[in-house]
Design a protein around this nucleic acid. Structure first.
Lengths: 350, 350
DNA sequence: TTGTATGCGTTATCAG
DNA sequence: CTGATAACGCATACAA
């Protein structure tokens, strides 16, 4: 079965015995068109089941009302919320969203970016994959005059718009909170340090310890503990140290914090009394573990909106190339039970 | 700053002093081209930083390697997993994915579908919004010869490809399991019954009761209890009945099951001993509540892959319009602690 | 306000 | 195998 020919503006023009350009003007709501002709065209278009061809229109106009998004994984709370936020705004602006996932693989990320370049999207919004690699593909985007916004996991060296969380400050506050609660040997679960976000979180941790005059102990810092399994593994090691920590800041994610909690529970170590825990991300489940897990909310949905708004406010019309801007969003420490030691009243502890 | 002109096949043709059509053939890997010219073109294209213009190509070819997806919410585990699954396949096939969310609103869903029609996507994959409404917009899709796949929440009356879970069978098994565990008064939390999936789940519930000769009691069936809050509310009512239920099947979602659990815990009712609970969806958190929640896994990721494969295997090339097909995926009952009553040994209970 | 003519970047057709 | 040319559907500069 052959695909049926679609109605074009020429078909309408023919039927009404007017010029195609008039039809075009009527449909695009131009000011230079008689109200009556416009009404007639609209009516006829509806009757003829006319559907605007965006591809042709975009080709002619040379711009494509489409934004590409590349994330490591679509089905991860953090990212799906951000995408939802972005979509909320772009939908209102009549833009489309093309979504790709890199699966944390650099090669695939490059592929996705190339696809989006081929599509001539107006803007690419990206959070880079964990796998290390060069950043030529992002430079390509800039070279081709396509707008680029990095978020969360950004390449600092590249001079682009960026929307990030203030990871360092958030981590600082989390660790300061643990210290205030009376924890003294605070361990850190780290993510891959070639990603800035994890370095920043580590800096926050170090800063808080320094501020409170607590010594930094190498044995309490575990590299690459960024999944539930790896978090559990690291915790098992930490808890069997001669002098185990009395708190663990799982700076990588709530999943690793969950790993911590499970190991502690299995070993009969009471949380928060003997071990304080703080995660990162405010995954829905942190609220319902027992005890509930203290964590950091990254305001993901609004982060997505911020990203999209950045494009529409500063980049959509680029008379002069807008000066790249870094927007920092302040995450929020959500204090729950896993970090609230039953404080010994002052008069007793003195 | 003006947007710099992009390199086109004409630029390449000019430089090499050959025809544009030859360049096109070389780039599209045609067979009717000399290997040497082809190599030369490819080399020159790379040097000139040529980038294929998909918009122009699609316009000319009249087909668009793009698939549109419309879901109620992107940031919902079930949907984001399905999208991830779809993307996995479409990526391999070189297709793009345009994603929209209806926010459960009918008007917005219609809007999304129209946008996708305007984009002339090859296929629309949709799970309809909860809000009731007409289905003209879906009929439109069919009328315009655009492939349509419905999944999960489908309009049965429309003769399209469908990928669904066997909700009835899954619910049947869940309730049968509760009965086997010794629960005798099993309540049902229902979703909006104009959505087939919720009707099917109810049918499964009724079927299991019938099979085991358990009377159906209207007072144990709660309509519209499909969020955590509504589930909690319904549970409070159920538990204050003169003869309260001894198990609750939250057929709507794990969130409502969580509502059940929280109310029960607050009232000091022991789960699973005095109250059995079964949810639906296998949200990550069901594993870590205490007690963990028995639920139904819908194999979402593979469901997404099934959907995409359906398109590529049966619909991409449509010599004759393919006969719509319904693919049913069998969900899996995940038995956890919330439904495992400590059975009283036979010799004591007799 | 309306019509005419042209081009956006490709690819398909046809003749060579 | 290669080149010339038309066409995909639309929007715009220009003329009327």
């Amino acid at each position: 079965m052959k695909r049926q020919k679609r109605t074009t503006i020429y078909d309408i023009a023919l039927k009404l015995n007017i010029a195609a350009s008039s039809v075009s003007r009527a449909l695009s709501n131009s000011s230079k068109i008689n109200a009556d002709t416009k009404a007639l065209v609209l009516k006829t278009a509806a009757e003829m089941n006319y559907q605007h061809n965006v591809m042709a229109s975009n080709l002619r106009k040379g711009n494509n009302q489409t934004i590409g998004v590349v994330v490591p994984r679509i089905n991860q709370n953090f990212f799906s919320n951000i995408i939802a936020g972005i979509e909320e705004i772009t939908y209102d602006k009549g833009y489309n969203l093309i979504i790709c996932q890199s699966n944390e693989l650099h090669a695939r990320e490059v592929d996705c970016v190339n696809t989006l370049i081929n599509q001539h999207v107006s803007c690419i919004i990206i959070s880079i994959a964990a796998e290390t690699g060069s950043y030529d593909h992002l430079q390509q985007v800039l070279d081709r005059q396509i707008q680029l916004i990095q978020f969360d996991r950004v390449v600092e060296a590249l001079d682009t718009f960026k929307v990030i969380n203030d990871n360092e400050q958030a981590s600082f506050e989390a660790v300061a909170h643990l210290i205030t609660q009376g924890y003294k040997r605070i361990a850190l679960l780290e993510g891959p340090l070639h990603l800035d976000i994890f370095r920043q979180r580590k800096d926050g941790y170090l800063g808080a310890l320094a501020k409170h005059g607590i010594p930094v102990l190498a044995e309490l810092m575990c590299e690459n503990a960024w999944t539930k399994a790896l978090g559990a593994e690291a915790t098992a090691k930490l808890l069997s140290l001669p002098e185990p920590p009395d708190a663990i800041f799982a700076s990588t994610s709530d999943f690793s914090a969950l790993g911590v909690l499970e190991v502690a529970t299995a070993k009969g170590i009471s949380v928060p009394d003997s071990l304080g825990i703080c995660g990162y991300s405010n995954e829905p489940f942190t609220e319902i573990t027992s005890p509930s897990i203290t964590t950091i909310d990254q305001h993901t949905m609004s982060m997505g909106k911020t990203i999209a708004n950045l494009y529409f406010q500063e980049m959509e019309v680029q008379e002069t190339p807008a000066e790249p801007k870094i927007v920092s969003i302040m995450p929020e420490l959500i204090i729950r039970k896993s970090s609230q030691k039953k404080l010994i009243p002052k008069y007793l502890s003195d």
